[in-house]
Design a protein around this nucleic acid. Structure first.
Length: 328
RNA sequence: GCGCCGGUCGGAUAGCGGCUAUUCCAGGAGACUGUAAAUCUCCCGCCCAAUGGGCAUCGUUGGUUCGAGUCCAACCCGGCGCA
């Protein structure tokens, strides 16, 4: 099962609910919750007992929240960069393990790229990030990069966004390392290796105004719980401010407040706005996927109890059938 | 009451008398091939027979001028100073 939706839509709660209902375990699909110590900063579920092995990018037991095991949380230090490919590898492993134990894997998260890469088994080019090369290329203008790519890999240059330096750099990085053009990705392919069966995708949809309200409320909560202190702690442990800014919108937008440029209210509002914009980008990604079963959430806290959503019933009947198939 | 400064898009801001009124934020739509809470694109006064075209608009009213957001006058509103 896959539970997705914008931030603050209630994915985590639903995932736990489903896990209890169907004897499942949760696999987080969140690019920020993988970092140790970034708890409030990534709106991580309050987890106790996180068992992390000594290996980088390896986890043993996962984390527990309300007695449900969660995977792909706290798997790496925030000092390290973590990427989709690493995510895919670890998540695949977790899924296999869960199934082996006769349980249901429930993928829950808001990072659309991670979810799609995992469940469609996208074969991304096996070229590791080359930080030095990237730093060099970053110095050039988008136009220069585009011309360079055009020379190295004319085919890739055709469809690429010529203003997007990050993509241009990556494309150049691939050709330079493989000497071959960037392979064309066949987009829709079921992941036979992991499961070889269908995924039930459940999306939580929240009315824009309602979502904004929820985000603001949660932002206030995080500030009160001490995101700032959490950030300062990470800084003391050696994570650079630049890195922290990149990891969490909370960390980034608390800066002007600490510098005395913003008061508390302005800070709260700014962060809520930035997270709201992020939520919209998430929805832009999800909207393309027509196979998602959307359930809309009203103001009720628990979508399962929301008898208003006939849709939900259909979806959950589907879920039940899927579970039965798994158990057979 | 007097003096000074100012009034330009939802907010902030630029705008030597001339060509398409600038930029930032907010808002909307979208892209996404190992950084994805990232990165990038387009729209954002009104209307239409919409790869284009029409009509507005810079507090208000008048004036100067071939031509005014820009100059002048009066008035309205806001800020500061003096009473």
């Amino acid at each position: 099962m896959v539970v997705l939706g914008p931030t603050a839509s209630g994915k985590s709660a639903l995932a736990v609910r489903l896990a209890k209902l169907f004897n499942g375990e949760v696999i987080s699909a969140d690019s920020r919750q993988v970092y140790r110590g970034v708890d409030l900063g990534s709106d991580k579920v309050p987890h106790d007992r996180c068992q992390v092995s000594g290996f980088r990018f390896q986890e043993k037991d996962g984390c527990f929240y309300e007695g449900v095991r969660h995977h792909l949380i706290d798997v790496v230090s925030p000092k390290k960069t973590f990427t989709v490919t690493q995510y895919k590898k670890l998540a695949e492993k977790a899924i296999r393990d869960i199934i082996k134990r006769g349980k249901i894997p429930i993928i829950a998260g808001g990072t659309g790229l991670y979810i799609d890469t995992l469940i469609n088994d996208w074969k991304l080019p096996r070229v590791k990030p080359n930080l030095k090369l990237r730093e060099e290329l970053e110095k050039k203008s988008a136009e220069e990069l585009f011309l360079e790519l055009k020379k190295l890999d004319p085919k890739r240059a055709v469809g690429i966004d010529r203003h997007n330096k990050r993509r241009l750099v990556r494309a150049i990085e691939i050709v330079m390392q493989t000497g071959k053009p960037v392979p064309y990705l066949s987009l829709i392919r079921a992941n036979k290796r992991i499961v070889g069966r269908e995924f039930l995708k459940i999306g939580i949809k929240v009315a824009p105004e309602e979502l904004k309200k929820r985000i603001k409320k949660r932002t206030l909560k995080r500030l009160r719980e001490g995101v700032i202190q959490e950030m300062e702690g990470l800084k003391k442990s050696g994570v650079s401010q630049k890195r922290l800014n990149d990891i969490s919108l909370y960390y980034r937008w608390v800066g002007p407040f600490l510098d005395g440029e913003m008061n508390k209210l302005e800070t709260l509002e700014t962060i809520a706005v930035k997270i709201g914009q992020y939520a919209k980008r998430q929805m832009t990604w999800f909207k393309r996927d027509k196979s998602i079963n959307w359930i809309s959430r009203g103001s009720q806290a628990d979508p399962i109890k929301n008898k208003d959503t006939l849709r939900a019933l259909t979806v959950f009947n589907g879920a039940r059938r899927l579970v039965e198939k798994f158990l057979r």
